[in-house]
């Protein structure tokens, strides 16, 4: 464990907690894409298949349980909660996210480290995570309303993978085993996807104006 990975995990944890707190306290999911949340739940499900079979550390297990639990409860809140679900704007959340999954699955079948079910599922989760934010970014462009918490959520989510890239660089130079190039490529693509959001987020923060995404 190094400081970059810890910072990445804490930022990722903060992002899901910000979202969960927002939905739980104000009982609204306005501006939140259910499709992105469903994709994240699938990412954690397919990545943590070895949760009970492959013990790495207490920290690792607890964090996996938190990410699984939080992503599924966010999906439950938006789909099932009698108050929250009324604020879900499904006409704006139109990205056909299941279309996104097939290319990731096919790519994972052809490009992976080892052709075993667990490994293909893990690689699938890496590819899927890289593009899972797309429905949310599309929805933001459409609704143009970015309340502070949603803006912070997306910022933290983008920052976590940026910290992971620093972690991979650090591990490359300091450890004997390595992080697979698939993870590198997908992680860089994922962070780049947040690129324009980061740009507008910093602009709004610097000029102290409300966050606006161009149409």
């Amino acid at each position: 464990m190094n400081i970059f990975r810890l910072a990445g995990d804490m930022t990722h944890l903060a992002s899901v907690l910000v979202l969960l707190l927002k939905i739980h306290t104000i009982k609204s999911c306005a501006g939140i894409s259910l499709k992105t949340q469903e994709l994240f739940a699938i990412v954690f499900l397919t990545r943590y298949l070895d949760l009970f079979t492959n013990f790495i550390s207490i920290y690792n297990t607890i964090m996996k349980l938190i990410f699984l639990g939080s992503s599924f409860s966010i999906v439950w809140y938006i789909r099932r909660h009698r108050v929250v679900r009324r604020s879900y704007d499904k006409d704006q959340d139109t990205f056909r996210h299941f279309f996104l999954m097939w290319p990731c699955l096919i790519l994972a079948i052809f490009i992976n480290e080892k052709f075993t079910l667990k490994e293909v599922m893990w690689t699938f989760s890496i590819y899927l995570e890289a593009i899972a934010i797309l429905p949310q970014l599309v929805m933001l462009q459409r609704t143009r309303n970015i309340d502070n918490l949603t803006g912070q959520y997306i910022f933290l989510l983008g920052a976590y993978r940026a910290f992971y890239i620093l972690n991979w660089i650090y591990r490359y130079f300091t450890e004997e085993h390595y992080v697979h190039w698939i993870t590198w490529v997908a992680g860089v693509i994922q962070t780049l996807l947040y690129g324009d959001f980061f740009y507008y987020y910093f602009q709004s923060w610097k000029n102290n104006v409300k966050l606006e995404l161009p149409a």
Partner: peptide
């Protein structure tokens, strides 16, 4: 030699 892939990350 870089033998093992790191699989201890979240």
């Amino acid at each position: 030699a870089r033998d093992k892939v790191a699989k201890d990350e979240l």
